[in-house]
Design a protein around this nucleic acid. Structure first.
Lengths: 189, 189
DNA sequence: CGTGGTCGAGAACGGTCGTTCTCGCCCCTG
DNA sequence: CAGGGGCGAGAACGACCGTTCTCGACCACG
């Protein structure tokens, strides 16, 4: 009855919940097994090691992030609105009960120094986000350095909201973003 | 001959180097002992547990950060220069060989979910920095929200420089900060 | 109904780590 | 010089974790 091809997804989603909520090293494979409701053997049949599972979870999280950003941008039409939608997306996310900061920043802080794979995946996610921002900034007709600045605001908001428990970091980031965008655009007539 | 009161400092400094460079959980107490050149017994005589040592290291790192910020601000005279000196300080730091991001963000990502003490210390450090920025912004005569925005830029620069390995995040943050500061000040005559 | 094979549950194994204990050396005192 | 107490080095202990193995139940098929 249970679709065997679902195994991978169930395992990854369970591991993601646990890794994100408690930290990667704080979660044993046995806990993943219990949360996924799947025998340990099947986990190891699909993922040869915990590290491989961690990488799969990070790739999974990349998809979630991209989907969230895309959904937030969907209702916007202009590049400027799409850029600001990023901070609205963050605002919603920061108010989630389980919010514990950016999973990639957390994973990098925990394992980046000892696991090149984790470091590389975190870097990949950040580069992908920066590329997304850069493309919108380009369409906006502003200089590329604006993209770097707007990305910094988003990153800073995530850590600030996580550590301080202050979701209004998103609002501050959005306000700063509007100022930076307006300053970077050629003066309106 | 060796000043016994030096023990605490040597242990904390050794642990700080290791924890920061490799992550806290990746470093065993035996490695701390080797790096500090001190018998394990003396470590446990001064710190009852690894968690206590971690807390001492985080407090030690707070002092380092504060001293670095103060030194960078020393050559500045106006509040505006002092604010921008923060990003110059970051720029220097990011170019350090051993730079691996903000130790508090890393510790929070690694242990914040399971250790209330670590989470609290990270929060304390961020709050202290935000208060410093807020005081300068206040002296500048700008609205308090500018302080939150400038803090976001500093946080974002740290994670971006760490994960991406791009020290120029500091420069981007500084440029954004100048724009935000100028926009927040009452128009000059 | 018998049988072979698959699979789930949990035990087992090897290694690591935080913490404590042991033992032998050295130095200080009487 | 004799004795003892403190201290350093490393072993030991208990717990945990990633990974593998065992065993018994179930199921499909002849």
């Amino acid at each position: 009855m249970p679709d065997p091809s679902d195994d991978g997804r169930r395992i990854v989603e369970a591991a993601d919940r646990l890794f994100y909520g408690r930290g990667i090293q704080a979660v044993g494979m046995d806990l993943v097994r219990a949360e996924a409701g799947v025998p340990l053997k099947r986990i190891y049949a699909r993922f040869p090691s915990k590290e491989a599972l961690v990488e799969a979870v990070m790739r999974h999280r990349m998809g979630i992030w991209d989907a969230g950003i895309a959904a937030a941008a969907a209702s916007a039409t202009t590049p400027r609105e799409r850029l600001l939608a990023i901070y609205d997306f963050l605002d919603d996310w920061f108010r989630d009960d389980g919010f514990r900061g950016c999973g990639f920043i957390n994973a990098f802080g925990e394992l980046g120094a000892v696991s090149p794979a984790v470091a590389h995946l975190a870097q990949e996610q950040k580069a992908s986000f920066q590329a997304y921002v850069a493309e919108l900034v380009d369409r906006l007709g502003a200089a590329p350095s604006l993209a770097a600045q707007l990305s910094l605001l988003a990153e800073g908001a995530q850590t600030t909201a996580a550590i301080g428990g202050t979701p209004d970091a998103a609002r501050h980031a959005r306000e700063a973003a509007t100022v930076l965008i307006d300053a970077a655009l050629p003066a309106r007539v």
